[in-house]
């Protein structure tokens, strides 16, 4: 008995040795920095010359119009882009789920391929496609849809439209993969029964596909919301936050405050903590949903 107990303890100890390196790294590079960020958000000053200032940064936040605008921008992207993209992904997934569909593999690969591109690179491709002398303007003028090139990046709403189009291009296939996986778990006999009952394609979609995929739809909604709240690479490279901050994201504002202007780490940390709270709330909802599933 004593022998097995020490053996158990020895194994348990070895187990701890296995998990210590990874755990230490997470504490050092996630938990410590987030606590540090909170502490930083109570300090003001330029660069590393900081002093305690209580809630000053948070008060300043409330009257900062650029911060409010960046938050508004992110929510505009969120409210327009996420529903459009997820609906599109859902429709595409249910069309691709048909085993008799021809060129199924080709469609799947083609729609999924944008996921292989980095955020910076596709942002630059879209920036070039939609440049004043870019291909889209060339095509639209050649087809006489417009008589002079549109300055996509020059007006607040066309610039936002550009971000929304680009995001949709990059992430629709990504979400489609989730729905395809979910659809494979749905018993095909449900669809067969619906077919016998004479349910149309649209009815089958709204009455069977959507309700049964609800947990996954919720999951993808949360993931997309999370991603949009942290938007950076695209606004930085596609529109550089312009014109007049109309596409500035919160992350890009934090970046500007910390690394482009004279560094205001304390104030930037206060803003980053606001994002953290928003993301944390989302993650908690996600875990709740994950538990009940």
């Amino acid at each position: 008995m004593g022998q097995t107990l020490t053996l158990r303890r020895r194994q348990s100890l070895i187990g701890w040795l296995f998990i210590v390196p990874a755990s230490v790294l997470i504490f050092v590079f996630y938990f410590y920095p987030i606590v540090r960020a909170l502490w930083l958000s109570f300090q003001t000053g330029v660069g590393v010359n900081l002093q305690y200032a209580g809630l000053f940064n948070y008060q300043r936040l409330l009257s900062d119009n650029v911060f409010k605008l960046s938050l508004t921008n992110v929510f505009i992207f969120l409210i327009i882009q996420v529903p459009v993209m997820l609906t599109l992904a859902l429709i595409l997934a249910s069309l691709l789920n048909d085993p008799t569909l021809k060129f199924r593999g080709f469609f799947r690969t083609a729609l999924f391929l944008p996921c292989a591109t980095s955020l910076v690179s596709y942002a630059i491709v879209f920036r070039s496609l939609f440049a004043l002398d870019g291909f889209v303007n060339y095509l639209l003028t050649a087809l006489s849809i417009i008589d002079k090139p549109i300055n996509w990046g020059g007006n607040p709403w066309t610039a936002r439209f550009l971000i929304i189009i680009a995001l949709t291009w990059r992430w629709t296939g990504y979400n489609m993969v989730f729905y395809l996986a979910g659809l494979q778990n749905i018993d095909t006999s449900i669809y067969e029964a619906a077919l016998i009952d004479g349910a149309s394609g649209v009815t089958r979609f709204t009455k069977i596909t959507v309700p049964l995929l609800k947990p996954i739809i919720l999951l993808t909604t949360i993931m997309s919301t999370n991603g949009t709240l942290q938007l950076f690479d695209e606004t930085m490279n596609l529109t550089n936050g312009g014109p007049a901050n109309a596409t500035l994201s919160v992350s890009q504002y934090i970046y500007r405050l910390s690394f482009q202007y004279s560094p205001r780490f304390g104030y930037a940390a206060a803003i980053s903590f606001v994002i953290f709270i928003l993301v944390a709330i989302l993650a908690l909802i996600q875990m709740r949903v994950g538990d009940t599933r």
Binding site: I26, I34, I254, I275, A280, L282
Partner: peptide
């Protein structure tokens, strides 16, 4: 400990990049 580590998934990079940089 595992449950604790999972909490790190809700920390966005933008929130910790300044302390990390420092």
């Amino acid at each position: 400990l595992m449950r604790l580590l999972l909490l790190s998934m809700m920390i966005p990079f933008a929130a910790i990049m300044i302390p990390l940089f420092m």
